[in-house]
Computed example of a mutant assay.
Amino acid sequence: MGPLTINYTAYRSPTFNKRVRFIVLHYTAINFEASVKALSGNTSSHYLVPRLDDESYKASGYSGMQVFNLVDENDRAWHAGASTWANRTNLNDTSIGIEVVNLASDDNGVFTFPDYEDAQVEALIQLTSNILSRYPDVSPKNVVAHSDIAPTRKSDPGPAFPWKRLADAGVGAWYDEDTKTRYERQFNDQGVPQQSDILNALQQYGYSTAPASTADGYKALIRAFQMHFRPSDYSGKLDAETAAVLYALNDKY
């Protein structure tokens, strides 16, 4: 028997889809130089978006916005950790991870969330729009925060991340204001839904409700949702506006 011949072109099965189902956004909480080192160690990400005013970025010889591709999109990057979204777990297997340099900090539970640079946001819009054009299975609500998929462990990319600006550019999900206002009026008049109803609605949107087995876990889950969709108050306490945003999202998606 001679060498094996493989014909890659004669017949191609139509029953397949892309590996990538999600885009997960993070902040690094460290500067550019430290981010490159960290993402070359025990963690990794497909992309790194620097910050132009970062002195370590300038010291590395860069000027202007350059996005760094650290891991090929066809390969798994180790950015998500233990994670769940839309009934899928271990999202490293099915996602593209994007790290954004931002010096957010956690001082014994007291968080500081700096704003993102305009150049970073514009770069993110271009990058994610390009990714979405190549992976049509990534629906708007599958563009997620690390905190969405791991709410008890993570806070990134934080409440300063401009989710609405990305959604207005066609990246990710956002609610309709009129629908949210209608629900908010209803919940102010009649009271917010019961916790069981809120959990059902969160699960419908994509969140894992497993953390809600404890009071602290439920608070972390609400906080994660608020950081993404109601960043003006992310205390983790359910109120009429938070519930209204959730129900408006489920009406839309």
Rank of each mutant, 00 (worst) to 15 (best):
P114M: 01
S44F: 03
A169R: 01
T9G: 08
I131D: 02
I149E: 15
R12F: 07
D53E: 13
D197W: 00
T9C: 07
L48H: 07
A29F: 02
T84D: 06
N102I: 05
V100Q: 09
A38N: 15
D75A: 03
R76M: 14
K252D: 13
F161N: 03
D148R: 04
K18Q: 11
S40T: 03
A59R: 15
W85G: 01
N188S: 10
P3G: 10
F16G: 12
Y62M: 05
S56P: 15
A212G: 08
A173K: 02
W163E: 00
G2A: 11
N90I: 01
A150F: 09
V192E: 09
P211A: 02
G97A: 05
Y205T: 03
R21C: 02
D189M: 04
G206L: 10
S129Y: 02
A215I: 08
P159A: 05
G41E: 05
E99H: 08
Y11H: 13
Q194I: 05
N188C: 05
V24G: 10
N90C: 04
S196T: 14
G217W: 04
T214H: 00
E177Y: 06
V245H: 03
K37H: 07
T94K: 03
I98E: 13
S196Q: 13
E55F: 00
L166A: 04
N42G: 11
Y11W: 08
V71C: 06
N74P: 04
D72M: 03
S147D: 14
L221S: 08
L246I: 07
S155W: 07
D251P: 13
H228Q: 11
D216T: 14
F161T: 03
D54S: 05
V138M: 06
S40W: 00
Y247G: 11
E122F: 00
P162Q: 02
K58Q: 12
A59K: 15
K180L: 10
Q204D: 06
R76E: 15
P50C: 01
S235M: 08
Q204W: 00
Q195K: 12
L48I: 12
Q195I: 14
E177C: 01
F32W: 10
T15E: 14
F32L: 08
L70G: 03
L246K: 04
L127C: 07
R165H: 02
E99D: 12
L246Y: 02
A243P: 14
D168H: 05
K141H: 11
R223D: 03
E122Q: 12
V101N: 10
A224G: 13
G172Q: 14
L25I: 15
V20F: 01
F229A: 09
E184D: 10
G81K: 09
Q66H: 06
Q195G: 02
D189G: 01
L221T: 09
A145Q: 11
S147G: 13
A167M: 08
T179F: 00
